[in-house]
């Protein structure tokens, strides 16, 4: 907990979870996509679906997808800005009985053809977590430079990745490993203190057993 969680954040109202958190979800998903968003199909669940409109959750997510921060005064008018930029979007409302009350699913297509299907939740106080990317279940805040790796679940892969990072003098803040089934595939989520460069990413992608590596930089 930081002192500026008590005096702050500076944000567009009315709700830290439903507005500021929603902007951050948009921002994080934009970073996961890795390029300007061209099309977004968004589904809101739980309390996001029930009270989102009154809290501006919809406008907040669109604002974040265009790169606006939670304190950007254009957040309430983000629809107009989206029209101006030609960003196409739709909203639907869904039920997810077992899910977190403030959940959003974003299906995105980028201007250069990238796509992403992401599930994110607003966990309170404006903080968020990404819970799923494509078919990878995971959990991270997207506040730090983050590397997400899907790999074959074999001994040595985790050690190989951490060796490359340490050789490149990258300090790891958190390191999670989740696997679907023994001997199947696993997902590593590595949050770093400093950004990673393309050479390092290429080295990681060429390691044996790595199936896919997604890198999310800070805005």
């Amino acid at each position: 907990m930081d002192l500026f969680d008590l005096i702050g954040p500076i944000m567009v109202g009315p709700s830290s979870s439903h507005t500021a958190g929603a902007v951050r979800i948009g921002l994080a998903c934009r970073r996961i996509l890795g390029e300007e968003v061209a099309e977004a199909d968004i589904t809101l669940y739980g309390s996001f679906a029930a009270t989102g409109r009154g809290h501006g959750t919809d406008r907040a997510i669109i604002a974040g997808l265009m790169g606006m921060a939670p304190d950007d005064e254009r957040v309430p008018d983000s629809y107009a800005e989206a029209r101006r930029r030609g960003l196409l979007f739709s909203f639907a409302f869904g039920e997810m009985p077992q899910g977190h009350p403030n959940t959003a699913r974003l299906v995105l297509r980028g201007v250069k053809g990238a796509d992403a299907d992401i599930e994110a939740v607003s966990v309170g106080g404006g903080r968020i977590e990404i819970r799923r990317i494509g078919d990878m279940a995971l959990c991270f805040s997207a506040e730090q430079p983050t590397l997400i790796i899907r790999n074959e679940d074999k001994p040595g892969t985790v050690a190989d990745v951490s060796r490359v990072l340490s050789e490149e003098k990258i300090n790891i803040a958190t390191f999670q490993v989740n696997r679907n089934s023994r001997g199947g595939t696993a997902v590593m989520v590595i949050e770093c203190d400093t950004p990673l460069n393309d050479t390092l990413l290429a080295r990681i992608r060429s390691l044996p057993g790595i199936l896919r590596a997604v890198y999310i930089n800070r805005e």
Partner: peptide, 21 residues
């Protein structure tokens, strides 16, 4: 009122309570 009308405020400690301090 500013908070409810989506203006820029400082959460203290939350957005709903931003007027007190």
């Amino acid at each position: 009122e500013c908070n409810a009308c989506m203006h820029r405020i400082v959460a203290a400690p939350t957005a709903g309570a931003c007027g007190v301090l």
